[in-house]
């Protein structure tokens, strides 16, 4: 008489235990996979951001590891500092130079290397070479090319842009353009690959239909290629904006922020303040840069979703 309820209870208990284990696995497994990322991001990103946030409201002495609370004084000082405004302006100017070039030049290259002609793979490799060239090497080469007695200087005189040999990197009016060209050269191959992937996902029959309708190459590019590449354009634009905001290496290696601060961008400004042990100002400026970067990322998300909606429509 008692056997049946006992067996039932045992089955029930087993089922509950099994369900419990399943739920546990369901709940814990994702966390287990996420744990390495959480730890790495926490230690190397979140905690430093929180520390920087704290330091930006202190008069912090990094070596003594102490500081008094000063409220928003560091931000006030930054906003009064003409070097900060100059670095912000330089960052914006840098973006304005780099953005259109980074969007269109790699696109043209991608269209060219997307042709089915002999030896095109060699060109793809050649265009990609700057991406894998270490920045130190690239900076040395470009410094030589830009020098007063270098090829670029001679070329600019020959085509009549300058009257006498001019080193673009040491003139305050041209230094930023000089550095921007290095950035564009370095990123050309990388963005070309993004466009190439975009191009190869465009269905061939669309081009065939256009050809039957008598469309010219330019018409095909204008009406098919360019609109279909819109998501890639958005991606390249946003990546350029974010990378441009953080530009540092090429500047540090070529001009060091000079001449007279003409190439000091926001990151360079933060780095200089940090190296001068002005950690609180560096942290406050870092927070401003973070806010600007988040703004750019939100813009990216908005633009990407808009593009996706447009394509779906």
């Amino acid at each position: 008489m008692n056997k049946e309820p006992v067996a039932l209870a045992q089955v029930k208990a087993k089922t509950i235990q099994k369900e419990k284990r399943r739920l546990n696995a369901k709940y814990f497994t994702p966390w287990l996979f996420l744990l390495p990322s959480i730890v790495i991001l926490g230690v190397f990103l979140i905690i430093p951001i929180l520390e920087a946030f704290k330091w930006s409201f202190l008069d912090y002495k990094i070596i003594a590891d102490s500081g008094e609370f000063v409220g928003i004084e560091n931000f006030k000082e930054i906003f009064k500092d003409k070097d900060f405004w100059m670095s912000l302006l330089n960052t914006i100017l840098f973006l304005l130079i780099v953005l259109p070039l980074n969007v269109f030049l790699p696109m043209i290259l991608a269209v060219l290397v997307n042709q089915k002609i002999k030896g095109v793979a060699t060109f793809r490799i050649l265009y990609y070479l700057p991406v894998i060239t270490p920045m130190v090497v690239a900076a040395l080469i470009w410094k030589m090319l830009y020098s007063q007695n270098g090829i670029i200087s001679a070329l600019l005189v020959k085509i009549g842009i300058f009257d006498s040999p001019t080193n673009l990197l040491v003139q305050s009016s041209t230094a930023l353009i000089g550095v921007a060209m290095i950035t564009v050269w370095k990123g050309l191959g990388y963005y070309m690959i993004i466009y190439l992937a975009g191009l190869q996902s465009i269905p061939k029959d669309v081009y065939e239909s256009a050809s039957i309708d008598g469309a010219s190459t330019f018409q095909k590019f204008k009406s098919i290629t360019f609109p279909m590449l819109a998501p890639s354009v958005t991606l390249v634009s946003v990546m350029t904006i974010i990378a441009g905001m953080k530009v540092f290496e090429e500047i540090a290696l070529t001009t060091g922020g000079g001449p007279s601060g003409a190439t000091t961008t926001l990151v360079m400004y933060i780095y200089n303040k940090f190296m001068d042990l002005d950690v609180s100002i560096a942290s406050a400026a870092g927070l401003i840069l973070l806010i600007l970067s988040i703004g750019a990322s939100l813009l990216q998300m908005k633009m990407t979703s808009k593009n996706e909606d447009d394509l779906r429509a």
Partner: peptide, 11 residues
């Protein structure tokens, strides 16, 4: 007058 090279700006 070109006696000092332009690279001096880097210094």
């Amino acid at each position: 007058e070109g006696m000092i090279p332009q690279e001096t700006a880097e210094g």
